[in-house]
Design a protein around this nucleic acid. Structure first.
Length: 271
DNA sequence: AGGTTGACCTGGACGC
DNA sequence: TGCGTCCAGGTCAACC
C-alpha cells in the first residue's frame, strides 16, 4: 500500500523524468476520478511545463508553475511512465502526454481513497488537512501534537492530520521498534517513550525510502515510476508476519484490530 | 473536538 | 477448473 516511502520513490522517479517537460495533451478517462478542479481547467495544463515533482504525506504532487496536480494514490495507485501510442490498459484513469512522446498514465484498480486533484494557485485541497510530514517532523513537534490524545497510539499514527505519511505497514514497524503496544492509549505513554517512537518512525521511513519502498504481492502492489519493485518488503519485522516468531525474542506475533486495521505486534516486546 | 465506525472498490487467495 | 467467499486498507463522512 503506498505510504510515504512509496510516494517519495514515485515522486523522485517522476521528478527525474519529467521536470521541464511540456504537456501536449491531458486526457481524463474517468470523470469521477477528478476530485478537485474541472475538466476544463485540466485541459488548460496543455502547453505548461512541469516545474518540479514532490510529495506531501502519501500524495505525489506535480507542480506546473503555481498550479499543482495532486495524485492521491490510495490503495492501488500506480503512476506509470512510458511512450505514447502503446495500448492503454484497464483502470487507466488519467493520461498526460508530453512533448517528445513520453506519457504518464495514472493506473488505479481499486479506486479506494484515490483520485486526482487539480489545485489552482493558493488552493490546497486535501493537502490542507495534513499535519507535518512524518519524515521531517521534529521530536518536540511529534510529542506536542500527540499530547492530550486518548486514542490508541496506532490510531493516532494513522491520523494524517496529526502527522502525514504513516500507514498500516510503517506504523506497525515503528511501534515494534519502539517497543510500544499498538493499543496503548497515547496519554499513557511517557514523553521519553514517545521520543523513542519519534526516532523509530523517522528511522523506519528513512530505511524504506533508501530501499525504494515496500512492494506487497499482487498487481495492485507498489512499484516505482518505472515499474521496479521496492526492496523494503523483506525488511518487515512484524507487518504481515502474524503467527510467525518475533525476530527479537521468538514469541509468536499476535494480530488484533486497532482503528479497524489489521495490526501485528509482539506480545512480549511491545508493552 | 476528538474518537470511532463503516462505506467505498477490486484483485487475489483460499476452500470446496 | 470454476465458482463463491473473504480479505486487504486510505480517506472521508457521519456518528457519538
Amino acid at each position: 500500500m503506498p505510504e510515504l516511502p512509496e510516494a517519495e520513490t514515485i515522486a523522485r522517479g517522476l521528478a527525474t523524468a519529467l521536470t521541464g517537460a511540456a504537456v501536449s495533451s491531458v486526457r481524463l478517462r474517468r470523470a469521477d476520478f477528478l476530485k478537485t478542479g474541472s475538466r476544463a481547467a485540466l485541459r488548460r495544463l496543455t502547453g505548461r511545463r512541469v516545474t518540479s515533482v514532490g510529495r506531501r504525506g502519501k500524495c505525489v504532487v506535480m507542480h506546473f508553475g503555481r498550479w499543482r496536480l495532486v495524485l492521491q494514490l490510495g490503495m492501488s495507485g500506480r503512476p506509470c511512465l512510458g511512450r505514447a501510442g502503446r495500448p492503454i490498459g484497464p483502470h487507466t484513469h488519467l493520461v498526460v502526454t508530453f512533448a517528445g512522446g513520453r506519457q504518464l498514465r495514472y493506473v488505479n484498480s481499486r479506486r479506494i481513497a484515490a483520485g486526482v486533484h487539480l489545485l489552482s494557485p493558493g488552493e490546497d485541497g486535501p493537502l490542507g488537512r495534513l499535519g507535518p510530514d512524518a519524515d521531517g517532523i521534529t521530536r518536540a513537534e511529534f510529542v506536542g501534537r500527540l499530547a492530550g490524545r486518548t486514542a490508541p497510539i496506532k490510531a493516532a499514527l494513522l491520523n494524517q492530520s496529526i502527522l502525514a505519511g504513516v500507514g498500516n505497514i510503517y506504523s506497525d514497524e515503528a511501534l515494534f521498534r519502539a517497543g510500544i503496544r499498538p493499543t496503548r492509549r497515547v496519554g499513557r505513554i511517557s514523553r521519553q517513550r514517545l521520543g523513542k517512537l519519534h526516532a523509530a518512525v523517522r528511522a523506519v521511513l528513512a530505511e524504506a525510502i533508501a530501499a525504494g519502498g515496500s512492494t506487497v504481492t499482487g498487481s495492485s502492489g507498489f512499484a516505482g515510476a518505472n515499474g521496479e519493485p521496492g526492496l523494503f518488503t523483506g525488511s518487515h519485522r512484524v507487518y504481515g508476519r502474524y503467527g510467525q516468531a518475533c525476530v527479537r525474542c521468538g514469541a509468536t506475533l499476535r494480530r488484533t484490530l486497532v482503528g479497524g486495521r489489521t495490526t501485528t505486534y509482539c506480545p512480549r516486546c511491545q508493552k
